[in-house]
């Protein structure tokens, strides 16, 4: 008697149900729903693609990803062993000049994206996973559990980045890991022994921040009626947290992940600059800067400026992507 149409967000080819027969009606609505969902996704994607911020961010990131994957084929010089005149000015053969032992700065900057593009996403993912679990528990239980965990999280937030990095590096060292699997993984990723330590340090530092964001999102969700309804039918807390609430906070978690990747890049560079992150001979940007910044006073700016620009470009690019995703999500 009262046949209501499904609401069709963003579709202008609405099929009128009341005029078609019952069988075709069922088909049309199911198909229509699928089409709509696809169309909404496509429209969202189009909207994303139309945002100049997203395009610029994606372009820059893509460039660095290509560099990271193909550096040994596309760099003009060998970033490690090709030694020519030290500290040659930019121009001519060496576009970005050479560093103090005569390696091509452009090649080293291109190759330097590799470490950071492996470390930053991995540490961001780890921190988002652990932070989400923590945040779920804190936001869901509130009360004493939240109080205790929140204090611990705040204690972690108070830790100075450098100190943690230094401590971790000294403790776990840069010696080859004993574990065969870990050694093998590192080899595949062509990472040095210090990199896992950096990953762990960044992940530990970021976990509390993610936890706080997720906690806030969970607290907003847990007061909604669907959670009460789940409790009224006798669901366990674990079920409510992971199956009811978690799928509803995926949006903010994805945004948090992109934002964390941006910060992770920055933190990785900072750690290596301070000498407590990635260890030589990696062409990590922070390391290159650290090796050459003292020469700035002598007018030798190129080995410092170009890696610094590289860091800035990648951080900005990732943030542009994060902002765009958030803006499109919020619509």
């Amino acid at each position: 008697m009262d046949e209501e149409l499904v609401s069709t967000p963003g579709s202008d080819q609405v099929v009128d149900l009341s005029r078609s027969g019952p069988v075709t009606m069922q088909m049309t609505v199911l198909q229509q729903a699928a089409v709509e969902r696809k169309q909404a996704r496509r429209e969202r994607w189009q909207l994303l693609r139309r945002r100049p911020g997203f395009l610029i961010g994606a372009g820059i990131s893509l460039f660095w990803v290509v560099c990271a994957v193909l550096y040994d084929r596309i760099t003009p010089f060998d970033p490690f062993d090709d030694l020519s005149t030290p500290l040659a000015r930019p121009g001519g053969e060496h576009w970005f000049g050479t560093d103090q032992i005569g390696r091509d700065v452009l090649s080293r900057v291109m190759a330097g994206s590799r470490d950071v593009l492996v470390i930053a996403p991995i540490s961001a993912v780890i921190s988002v996973v652990t932070g989400t679990l923590l945040g779920l528990v804190m936001g869901y239980y509130r009360g004493l559990v939240d109080d205790v965990l929140s204090r611990i999280v705040e204690a972690f937030l108070a830790l100075p980045v450098v100190l943690v990095g230094l401590l971790a590096l000294v403790t776990f060292g840069s010696s080859e890991p004993e574990n065969g699997f870990l050694r093998w993984t590192l080899k595949i990723l062509t990472l040095g022994a210090s990199e896992p330590v950096v990953v762990i340090v960044v992940a530990v530092l970021f976990t509390p921040i993610v936890a706080r964001t997720v906690r806030a999102a969970v607290m907003a969700e847990r007061d909604l009626d669907y959670v009460t309804s789940a409790r009224l039918r006798g669901e366990t807390n674990l079920f409510i947290m992971t199956r009811e609430i978690l799928p509803n906070i995926v949006g903010p978690i994805v945004v948090e992940l992109t934002v964390r990747i941006g910060y992770a890049i920055f933190t990785v560079a900072t750690l290596s600059f301070l000498g407590v992150g990635v260890q030589p001979p990696s062409p990590d940007w922070g390391l290159i800067i650290s090796d050459h910044y003292s020469l700035m006073n002598g007018g030798i700016w190129w080995p410092t400026l170009f890696p610094a620009l590289a860091i800035a470009s990648l951080v900005i690019a990732v943030n542009l992507i994060a902002d765009s995703i958030q803006a499109v999500n919020d619509r």
Partner: peptide, 27 residues
């Protein structure tokens, strides 16, 4: 509610004011 038997839970249910928040939008 946590102390009630499953029969008692089954016997009493609720319809909320706002169907948007009453239904899990991810399901």
């Amino acid at each position: 509610i946590s102390k009630r038997s499953s029969d008692d839970k089954r016997a009493m249910q609720i319809v909320f004011q706002n169907p948007d928040s009453a239904l899990n939008s991810a399901w």
